[in-house]
C-alpha cells in the first residue's frame, strides 16, 4: 500500500473499492494495527481518530480503542468466529472487557444485540455455537459482535461477498439501518460496484496498492476521472442496462514485488501518454473534494500538491 489519504465523518459511508491485490484489505488491517510486524511496517502517514494518531498510540491504549470505539467485521464469518465458543459469549466478550459488564448484563446485551440484527428467538440462539448458524446468521452475529460497544467507526471488509444475493440484501439493509441508529462512520471494503452504488457516500478506488481516485459516489459513477475507474465501471454488467459487449481491461494488475516505473496502470491504460510510462503521477486535487492520481487531469487548474 502506498500513500492513501481520506477523511471520514460520523454517519457517513466510505467505500474502498478495488480488485484482488489492490491493497484494500491491507489498508483496513493497518488502520486497526492488525498486520503482523514484521514483515508489515507502516512506513509513513498517520491515522487520526478524533485528532489522535492511532499509529503511534501505545499498545494498551490501542487495545482499549479496538473493539470498543473502532470495530471490524470480516469477509468469512466461519473463520472469524471461534467455533468452540458460544455465539453469545463471543458477542459479549468485548462488553465485559471494555465496559466491565457483569456476566448477567453481558448476556442480556448479547440477546439484545442478536435481536437487533434480526436473529429469531435470540434468548435461545445466544447459547448456540457458530456451526448451528447459517451463513447469513453468522454474518449477523459478527455484526452484533462489532456493535457490542456502540463503536464510532465500523470497518467492514467484504461483509457480503460470501453470501447469496437475497441474504446480501438483508445484511446491507441491516447495516444501513444500524448506521442510521448509531451514527457510525462506516468504511466498506468491497469489489462489488453495485454494493458501492447502494451504500457509499464517498468512494476511494484502489489500484496496485494506492488510491487512484477519490470522489463522492454520484461523481464516481457520472464522471469518473481516472481511466482505471472508467474501465472498471465499463466492465461491470448490469441487470438493467444491456450492453452488447463489456469494456474489458487488457492484461492484469502489476506484481507489486517487482519495482515499476511510471504509473502502475499505464501498461493497461488505453489513454496512457508518453509521460505516464516515465513518471509516477502524484495525487491531483480536483474541484468538489475529488482527487485523481493521473497525469490526464494535470492542467493549470489542478496543480499537483
Amino acid at each position: 500500500m502506498d500513500g492513501l489519504s481520506y477523511d471520514l465523518h460520523a454517519g457517513r459511508t466510505l467505500a474502498v473499492v478495488g480488485e484482488s491485490g489492490s491493497g484494500k484489505s491491507v489498508h483496513a488491517l493497518s488502520l486497526m494495527r492488525l498486520l503482523p510486524v514484521p514483515p508489515a511496517r507502516v512506513t509513513a502517514g498517520e491515522v487520526l481518530y478524533r485528532g489522535r494518531d492511532l499509529l503511534t498510540l501505545p499498545d494498551p491504549e490501542m487495545r482499549r480503542l479496538r473493539g470498543d470505539r473502532l470495530a471490524m467485521i470480516f469477509q468469512e464469518p466461519m473463520t472469524s468466529l471461534n467455533p468452540v465458543m458460544r455465539v453469545g459469549a463471543q458477542i459479549s466478550e468485548s462488553v465485559v472487557l471494555h465496559k466491565g459488564a457483569s456476566a448477567a448484563a453481558a448476556r442480556a446485551r448479547a440477546v439484545e444485540l442478536l435481536r437487533k440484527v434480526g436473529i429469531p428467538a435470540p434468548e435461545k440462539r445466544v447459547d448456540d455455537y457458530p456451526h448451528q448458524f447459517s451463513g447469513g446468521m453468522r454474518q449477523r452475529a459478527m455484526i452484533a459482535m462489532a456493535l457490542a460497544c456502540d463503536p464510532d467507526v465500523l470497518i467492514a471488509d467484504e461483509p457480503t461477498t460470501a453470501l447469496d444475493v437475497t441474504i446480501q440484501a438483508q445484511i446491507l439493509e441491516l447495516m444501513k439501518s444500524l448506521q442510521r441508529e448509531f451514527k457510525m462512520a462506516l468504511i466498506l471494503i468491497t469489489h462489488n460496484i453495485g454494493v458501492v452504488a447502494e451504500m457509499a457516500d464517498d468512494v476511494v478506488v484502489m489500484y496496485a496498492g494506492r488510491a487512484v481516485e477519490k470522489a463522492p459516489v454520484q461523481d464516481i459513477f457520472k464522471s469518473p476521472k481516472h481511466p482505471y475507474t472508467r474501465a472498471l465501471l465499463g466492465s461491470v454488467p448490469s441487470i438493467y442496462l444491456r450492453k452488447d459487449r463489456l469494456a474489458s481491461i487488457p492484461g492484469q494488475p502489476p506484481d507489486l514485488a517487482v519495482p515499476f516505473k511510471g504509473c502502475p496502470f499505464a501498461p493497461r491504460c488505453t489513454e496512457a501518454l508518453e509521460r505516464c510510462r516515465a513518471d509516477d503521477p502524484p495525487a491531483f486535487p480536483l474541484a468538489g473534494g475529488r482527487m485523481s492520481n493521473c497525469w490526464l487531469v494535470d492542467s493549470p487548474a489542478a496543480a499537483p500538491r
Partner: peptide, 25 residues
Amino acid sequence: ALLSAVPVPDPALEKRRKRILLAGD
C-alpha cells in the same frame, strides 16, 4: 425478489429503487 436484491451499479437508480427483502434463509 431476487432481481430486486441485486445491487445496481448506479447510485441514482439505487436511491429510488424499492427492494423486496426476503425473510429468513
